[in-house]
Each structure stands twice: as C-alpha cells, then as structure tokens.
Design a protein around this nucleic acid. Structure first.
Lengths: 200, 200
DNA sequence: CTCCGTATATGACAGTCGTCATAATAGACC
DNA sequence: GGTCTATTATGACGACTGTCATATACGGAG
C-alpha cells in the first residue's frame, strides 16, 4: 500500500483506509484522517460533504479497487500461473507486510468497515459488498483463464477470499503469520485440482 | 446463542458479546450493555473494575468458550462424523440464523474485537487469540478422531475457521448466505480427502 | 483592480463516551 | 437492633466525537 502523492482529496481517502484497517471505523476520527494525510482539516467538509459516511465509503471503495489491481499485477508477474500460486501471492502480500513491518498497520479495511458498520450504515455495507465483488471478479476470471471450469471459478474465488480474510483476522489476533502460511499450504491441492475438469 | 438467565454479571457479559458482534467494540457503550442486560448501570463498576477493557475481554472469552462448546455438541449429535459434515454444521449455525432472524444480529464477536482493538488494547488482542485457540483445539481433536493424521489436524482446523470467519464477513456485507454455502460446498472434498492418510 | 469560485482556517455546538465520587439500599450474621 | 458487606443509584467530570457556521486566503477571468 504505497502512498501516492496526489491531491489532498486522494490522500485523505488513502489515509482513511489506512487508519480504518488499523483502528476500525468508529475509532478513526475525521481529525485523525486529516492529520494523517497532512491535509487541512477545513477541507474535510469541502471534499466530503456527505460527512464521515462518504469518506468511509470512498475508503472502502478504494480498498476494493486496490485489491483488484493487485490481482492483475500478480497475474502479470507470474510466469506459470496456477490457482495455488495466485493464492500464495495474495497471502504473501500480508505475510510479507507482517513479517517486515509488523502487525501495527492492521488488517483489511473492507473487513473493518463490514464489522463496524454493516448494521449501522446501509451505504457502507453496500460499499463493502461492492468491494468484495470487485475483488472476486478478477480472481474468478484469473481462475477461468487457468483452466478452471467456468461454473467453479467464482465459487473458488469466494473460497479463496474467505480463507484469506479469516486468516488475516487470526494472524492479527495471534500476532503470528501461522494462519496465513497454513491456509496457503492446505488450500493449494484443492485449488490446483480444479484446473482439470472432472470430465477431462 | 440462547440467553441464559443467570446473575446480572453473566447477563452483562453475554449482552456485551451480542452488542459487540453487531456494532463493534467502539460503538458499544457500557450504558448500552447494562440496558440490554436489564442490569443496573451502577453495577458496571462493581463487577468490572477493570472498566470496558475487562468487560470486552470477558465477552471475547465467553464467545471462545461458546464456540468450543458448540463443536462438542455438533460432534455428539452427528451419527456418522466426517470433517465436511462438521464444517457444514458450523456453517449451518450461521446460515440458519441469517436465514431465520436476518442479518441484524451481526457477526462473530471475536472477529469484531480483533478488528477493533487488536492494535489498541493488548489484553483484548490476547483474549481474541486465546478464543481462537480455544476454538481450534476441539476442532482439531475432532478431526483427529475422524481419521485425519495428527500433523494435519490442526492446520485443517485453522483452515476451517479461517474460511468460516471470512465467509461470515462476506455474507454480512452482501446480506446473503451465498458465501457460507459456497465455502461449505467447495471445502468439503478437501476436508474428507484428509481422513485417509496418504500412507494408508 | 475587481470579481468570484475553489480551497482553507478556526471555533463553537450538542451529543456521547468512559470514568469516577458519593450515597443510598438490601440482606445476612451476631 | 446494630453492623458489615455486597449491590445499586445517581450525577458530574473531562475528553472526545461529527457537524456546522463563519471568515479568510488564493488564483484566474473580466
């Protein structure tokens, strides 16, 4: 999650995502977001007239697009693509970050928004659902491109993202990447076995 | 999650877990907990001198014990146990609740506590890790009892819980149990295939 | 220079939070 | 009855929060 040096508006959305994934939505104040983004506090109302809800939704949106973009980059960088290798790349992003920078940066912003506002702010819930969808589609498409039958591509993508999100959660709680490495290893045979259709 | 009619103290812990899993830790006020538990507000300080942190930790603890107890009950009620059937029972608990009572009750309290305080309150993070551990152990033991090799039992249990937690997250965001049913179906062959040791 | 829309600054507002101090009540035991 | 402890009641405190109203600076167009 490199910080692009764009305008103050984009910086605030980016900072919001970072703070949300670390502290949760409720614990992230708008003043904190402005400070973290080195943006003037007076601009908050100007760029986000919808208030905190709009800011959070845009942060979730950003996270979903970011995740989708990562999938595309993983694919492009993979000489011999396979489902298990794609999942390993997705998990490695978290394993590497936790290993090098520690666990302080937190987990997934979409997960945090879901936990914090799924039953409070309907628009944020919808944003989270959209983010998951935007993340699932490219994964499913990638699987299909690797020889996974069309009707199994999306279910398997959902399984991958579920397992990844859950493992991130456990890893954060344990302050240990064990869950992430375990899930990567245990899921691999199932994922690769799907590339050969049963009818073959 | 039936509400046992015990003393006010237990009721408050139980209510805290319920409110936390719905609104998150930060959005759950102590006044709300007392009101939800029909307990006097003045008792909060008396039973939980450690303040909100202690109350949250006990709620997380309760949730971990509850999850472990459910696993035992699932096993006892299963005529022909198998790993996939155990996972299906665990997922069905959520599918049934979402299907009958809707999504308003929220998700997993342990997940909520992890997302909300993993980087803020060290003791709560430890409580969440302990809860996950207390949940993983009986699952792993159950798998071993079904013929899963000892060294694969715990990794598979971690995979199961990861996939379940992630699917709960996605289901809440989408307000659709699709992720839960999908994960149950897709994970089944992998789980059952583990019951026969490769060396056979 | 004037004008004007974008952008920023600043402070106040009402509300809620966790915490605490204080005091009243209830019930058991001597 | 008196006494002690466990429990409950109540109100206040300071520190936040998101929101908003208002005022200032910038920077091109006329």
């Amino acid at each position: 999650m490199a910080g692009a040096e764009r305008g103050p508006r984009e910086r605030m959305v980016f900072s919001a995502a970072q703070l949300i994934r670390r502290d949760g939505v409720a614990a992230t104040g708008m003043r904190d977001v402005a400070a973290h983004a080195r943006a003037p506090r007076g601009s908050l109302r100007h760029y986000f007239p919808g208030g905190k809800e709009q800011l959070v939704n845009e942060a979730v949106d950003w996270a979903g697009r970011y995740a989708a973009g990562r999938v595309a980059r993983f694919l492009a960088a993979m000489p011999e693509p396979s489902p298990s290798r794609l999942f390993a790349a997705m998990a490695a992003q978290w394993i590497d970050e936790y290993g090098s920078a520690g666990f302080e940066a937190g987990g997934c912003p979409v997960a945090a928004a879901t936990v914090d506002c799924a039953d409070a702010a309907e628009s944020t819930r919808a944003a989270a659902a959209a983010a998951f969808a935007r993340w699932t589609v490219p994964v499913a498409r990638a699987l299909a491109g690797m020889g996974v039958p069309e009707e199994r591509a999306e279910p398997l993508a959902t399984l991958m993202i579920s397992a990844l999100e859950g493992a991130i959660l456990i890893a954060r709680a344990e302050r240990d990447v064990r869950a992430l490495t375990t899930v990567t290893r245990e899921l691999a045979p199932l994922l690769d076995a799907a590339t050969t259709p049963p009818r073959a």
